[in-house]
Amino acid sequence: MDKQQVNELLSGKLKLIRTEKGYTQDKMSEVLGMSKKTLVQIEKGRTLAGWTTVVALCALFRESEILQGCLGDDPVEMVETIAHNSISTPKEKTMGGRVWWREVESCHGVRL
């Protein structure tokens, strides 16, 4: 799963998460730090939530059964993993600075 997929998934679940918590659109938009108009656009499927909104949603509503059903028991851990996987790490070096292998194939972040 990547950032775009999580954005799409949680944009579609935003209204369910809001109603699960019992919040009005006004209250939810205030909690997430966005305008009510933007929240309505996301809930109606006219636009997607941004990555920062998705991260805030996961952090503030981590106990939501809907979020846990989509992303596992700890939604914050999931978005943290996705965020850190997009950061490049040094490749092709060992602790001694010598390369002892070559890449045969790479797929979904796994290298052979």
Score class of each variant (00 low, 15 high):
I17H: 03
I17P: 09
T19I: 06
T19Y: 06
G22C: 04
G22L: 08
G22F: 03
G22I: 07
Y23T: 00
Q25H: 04
D26I: 00
K27D: 10
S29Y: 10
S29I: 03
E30D: 07
V31N: 01
V31P: 03
V31I: 15
L32K: 01
L32S: 04
L32D: 07
M34T: 05
M34P: 01
S35H: 05
S35Y: 02
S35N: 03
K36E: 10
K36G: 08
T38M: 08
T38I: 00
L39T: 02
Q41S: 12
Q41C: 03
I42T: 04
I42G: 04
E43M: 00
K44A: 08
K44D: 07
G45D: 03
R46S: 08
R46V: 04
R46K: 06
T47A: 12
L48R: 05
L48F: 08
A49M: 15
G50S: 09
G50E: 05
G50N: 08
W51C: 01
W51D: 00
V55F: 11
A56Y: 01
L57T: 05
C58S: 06
C58L: 09
A59Y: 06
A59Q: 03
A59G: 02
L60R: 03
F61D: 04
F61P: 01
R62K: 15
S64G: 13
S64M: 04
S64F: 14
I66Y: 11
C70F: 14
L71S: 10
L71H: 06
G72Q: 14
G72N: 12
D74E: 14
D74T: 12
P75F: 13
V76W: 06
E77P: 04
M78G: 00
M78Y: 10
M78S: 05
M78L: 14
V79F: 08
E80A: 13
T81C: 10
T81P: 05
I82K: 01
I82P: 13
A83C: 00
H84F: 14
N85P: 07
N85Y: 10
S86A: 15
I87D: 02
I87M: 10
I87C: 05
S88R: 13
T89E: 12
T89S: 13
K91L: 09
K91I: 14
E92Q: 07
K93H: 15
T94V: 05
T94R: 12
M95K: 06
G96T: 01
G96C: 09
G96L: 09
G96S: 06
G96M: 03
G96N: 08
G97R: 00
V99L: 11
V99A: 08
R102Y: 11
R102S: 11
E103Q: 09
E103S: 12
V104G: 05
V104C: 08
V104H: 00
V104W: 03
E105D: 11
C107P: 01
C107S: 12
C107M: 11
